[in-house]
Design a protein around this nucleic acid. Sequence first.
DNA 1: TTGGTAGGTATCCTAAAAGATAGTTGTATT
DNA 2: AATACAACTATCTTTTAGGATACCTACCAA
Lengths: 123, 123
Amino acid sequence: MKNKQKQIQLRDVQDVIDIIGGRWRGAILASLCDKEKRFNELQRDLGEITARTLIKELKYLEMNKLIDRNIDQTESSTVRYMLTKHGKSLDPLIEAIVSWGQQHRKLILGKSDMKILDEAIAG
Amino acid sequence: MKNKQKQIQLRDVQDVIDIIGGRWRGAILASLCDKEKRFNELQRDLGEITARTLIKELKYLEMNKLIDRNIDQTESSTVRYMLTKHGKSLDPLIEAIVSWGQQHRKLILGKSDMKILDEAIAG
DNA sequence: TTGGTAGGTATCCTAAAAGATAGTTGTATT
DNA sequence: AATACAACTATCTTTTAGGATACCTACCAA
């Protein structure tokens, strides 16, 4: 019984990490927390993502009801991506993630890049 | 300036997802939030993970100072994995994740498995 | 009518993650 | 001395994510 409960929680963690995990999804959602964005705007925002990857991730997030894809008919069929209400419910979680990430960096390094972690710990 | 701020947050999100992301890390940490565990105990807990993968992930988490590997000398060199103090600071975040995950499943399906999401949405 | 931008698609390719499976070492157990 | 379990390690193979690149369509502006 107690064991069952635990299993459910592990699955929940896995599911959420599926959704915000991967190289880009978290960042896409974080970027859309700010405000709605157009395709190219997102692509510039994220830096190095290719169009192929971006569109794939956007479709995935759309399927999961986290974002909407809106075509603005008035203005030459502009496409806008925005969080759904459900997507917006992720906002506090993302902020918690950001805040933990900042603490983590401070605690581990007091430096700006966590990728050098291995050396830092070895030394 | 405002743009700069946004960049930093995106990086934070990425960093944290690096740490708790992937197929297993989140679940391993969640499982250790409960209590310290032995290697085989963890392996059973997580269901389908192979020893090779588990040990790799454990080493990664150890390197990132989130867990400790303790050898109990008294009792036939039993190995125990447990969260460090820093690892424990992830607990609230993991609980937030679990709670959002539960909401998500309810909202999307009212069912028990999110993996059938695609069909559910298509229908 | 040519060029530029937005919003994509289609193919091919590579590197990294993770599974399958077998083997190893140490300890305790009978 | 033989068996069994814990805690790994080693090798090989498959799967998957994501990059590189080229192309396409619609719309507008000059």
